[in-house]
């Protein structure tokens, strides 16, 4: 019987890899540091996902259930890998629960960390209660509570969504685009307008990156059907006049500074490299790429490779990714891991 594949991280990418391996009879040990499987969409309580429109708890929940019910997958929750050694076909891992396991191959699906808006103090998060993040708005919607100002529970009449918070910003050392937040924001704007038809929703952007099929389904639709207003400006600062939030920017298309009152300001937070990546890089002896994500060994000839043979990577661990792409990459990594196992059958 071949040794199991060790999968580190139980988000969409890890769940997809585990399911793929189990469905061809390969056993898996899944190590997840939180107390639940599902990754960011479940842990952070996302609402309706792009582009399917399905609720995260249904869509990702069913991926979790499928894996949990499979006898070939053993999930270790509240658990991490402390030490890792060996070679393809015969890796050993020391886990934080004190146990030791053997693995034929390993897949890192450790995902990303949400940008912490506190690192951008001029945009008011942490100073004003009614400055929130996209994950908070996702939670307001997914819990059924509705979009309300945290300060006093009132329904906002004017909401500003600021794009690229924690992305595309040299001042805070984050030069990448987080890829999903434009579409996620257009989606949330429509959900806000649906729940609160009298609420004005503004999106402040530098470029709108609703790439591919998201263009008309999110960007155009949010304007044409939901009257979401897009202003080409990056906000300089969010303050308060004691009653409302005051947002300062430049409407760059008409070239004038603007100062506008809002009830709620939403940060479209970006996807940071997982805060654990330095540690993971050292434990698994894999290189990180220049932004701090887990580096890919090859882009074309072999998918899902890292700098170390037999250790693979998939999903947002490699950089900002959508759920769909994370799932595809999880399957690619499963295939690569299987190939490693086949090449090393009989390894001691």
């Amino acid at each position: 019987m071949s040794k199991p594949v060790l999968i580190v991280g139980g988000g969409p990418a890890g769940l997809s890899a585990a399911h793929a391996l189990a469905s061809v009879g390969q056993s898996v040990v899944m190590v997840e540091k939180e107390d639940r499987l599902g990754g960011a969409p479940i842990l952070s309580g996302y609402a309706k996902l792009i582009p399917s429109g399905e609720w995260a708890r249904d869509a990702i929940g069913s991926m979790v259930a499928r894996v949990e019910q499979n006898a070939l997958v053993e999930a270790r929750l509240n658990c991490q890998v402390n030490e890792f050694s060996g070679a393809p076909g015969k890796f050993q891992a020391q886990l934080s629960d004190g146990s030791k396991i053997e693995a034929g191959a390993t897949i890192l699906t450790t995902g990303f960390t949400h940008f912490d808006s506190i690192n951008k103090p001029e945009w008011g998060f942490g100073t004003y209660d009614d400055v929130v993040t996209t994950t908070q708005v996702e939670q307001m919607i997914s819990t059924g509570g509705g979009v309300r100002c945290p300060s006093d529970g009132r329904k906002p009449e004017r909401v500003a969504i600021l794009l690229c918070v924690g992305s595309r910003d040299r001042q805070i050392g984050r030069e990448w685009c987080s890829k999903v937040c434009c579409t996620v924001s257009a989606n949330l704007a429509m959900e806000i307008r649906e729940e609160l038809p009298d609420c004005h929703v503004y999106i402040y952007y530098m470029d709108i990156r609703t790439y591919g099929l998201y263009e008309d389904l999110y960007y155009w639709k949010s304007q044409e059907e939901f009257r979401v207003k897009y202003i080409k400006a990056r906000i300089a600062e969010v303050t308060s006049d004691g009653q409302r939030l005051i947002v300062k920017g430049e409407d760059t298309l008409v070239k004038r500074p603007i100062t506008i009152p809002f009830d709620m300001v939403v940060h479209a937070i970006g996807m940071d490299p997982n805060v654990d990546n330095m540690k993971l890089g050292a434990i698994f002896d894999v290189d990180l790429e220049s932004h701090g994500h887990i580096g890919r060994g090859s882009n074309y000839s072999a998918l899902a490779t890292t700098s170390r043979a037999g250790v693979f990577v998939a999903g947002a661990a490699t950089g900002p990714e959508t759920i769909d792409d994370s799932i595809s990459q999880g399957q690619a990594a499963a295939m690569a891991a299987l190939a490693t196992l086949n090449q090393n059958i009989g390894a001691a």
């Binding site: 595309r168 040299r170 530098m206 080409k232 400006a233 990056r234 906000i235 300089a236 600062e237 300062k248 920017g249 430049e250 409407d251 760059t252 070239k255 500074p257 603007i258």
Partner: peptide, 26 residues
């Protein structure tokens, strides 16, 4: 000068832009 995102942050925070026909982004 490294290029420009044309985001308008500079003009939005610029005290002079609020009083004169002047924009650092421009």
């Amino acid at each position: 000068l490294n290029g420009c995102l044309n985001c308008g942050i500079c003009t939005a925070t610029c005290p002079s832009a609020h009083y004169y026909d002047y924009s650092p982004r421009e």
